[in-house]
Design a protein around this nucleic acid. Structure first.
Lengths: 158, 158
DNA sequence: CGAGTTAGTGGGTCGGGGCCCACTATAGGG
DNA sequence: CCCTATAGTGGGCCCCGACCCACTAACTCG
């Protein structure tokens, strides 16, 4: 009983470790940073990947739709799309039906890039989630997904 | 089979939702932002809470130790400690054994503040984790903690 | 045709967080 | 007593990411 656990000098305060909020914030920051680093190697940022993914998953669409979907600022999206276009990852064409709109679509090169980025992301994931086994990772993914989607517990195979 | 699921216009790309990395980054950002907002109401930032927690959990210590523990930049800590001191939440005294060092300790007011901040953090937590039930939250907390501590899976009750 | 609205763009701002350097004061070892 | 290392401090820099405004082009409605 008397033996105090030798607290390592770099241990974080239990008060904080006990807060899921804190852990989420901290781990999320790490994940974000690593992911961003991965992208930075190619001169890309997080939005670039998000835009590519949205286009790959939902098909060509106007910037306006991407804005809605991703919650990105229209002005910022314009810059991202511009850059992706210049690099040949997306194509931008005036919508003939409504010539205000710019329809964006992913190119073959864009899809290829996205696949590589995904692979990179999974590598990062393996590093970050190293302490967890496969089953645990699946549980974590499921929980996080539910949190993200805001779906109540009683959905799914309750 | 032919009935396509009507995808809401603000649904995120499945490609991203499938990455725990992405979910962690995104949810973590939310958690961080809300927590920061909570603190901002009192003119505080995240480091302030971290420092208070470290002092409350581990007792008075030199800034140098806080630097090690929290991974904060010494220069930044100086500013944080200064501000907390001015507000009466911590006390700073020259270490008589080594007069280079400044020993920092929480005051009663500091402890009280920390308790309030903790309560606020738990409120945020309830909002963020609303989709999860109590048991699921416990599982999530456990998984996150393991990730944070870098503990391998085979620890604990297999 | 005009008025109001929407899509996209360019440019700029603001705040946070991390980081680094120069400097002082003190300690400790030859 | 010097020389080096360490603790703390002040100031400043830089990189975001988010946000906002002004402006143009184009559509819609009456």
């Amino acid at each position: 009983m008397a033996s105090e656990i030798p607290v390592p000098p770099d241990a974080l305060p239990p008060t904080l470790l006990d807060l899921s909020t804190f852990l989420l914030a901290r781990i999320g920051r790490t994940a974000r940073a690593r992911l961003a680093g991965q992208l930075a190697e190619r001169g890309l940022r997080l939005w670039d990947m998000a835009v590519l993914a949205a286009l790959a998953d939902f098909g060509p669409q106007a910037q306006r739709d991407l804005v809605r979907r991703l919650g990105i600022d229209p002005s910022d999206l314009a810059k991202v799309a511009d850059q992706l276009g210049a690099a040949g990852y997306v194509e931008r064409t005036r919508d003939q039906a409504d010539r205000r709109r710019v329809s964006v679509s992913v190119t073959a090169a864009g899809r290829e890039l996205l696949a590589e980025l995904e692979a990179g992301a999974r590598t990062v994931q393996d590093e970050v989630l190293a302490p967890l086994g496969p089953a645990e990772r699946r549980v974590l993914q499921e929980l996080l997904l539910r949190v993200e989607l805001g779906a109540p517990s009683w959905r799914g195979a309750g």
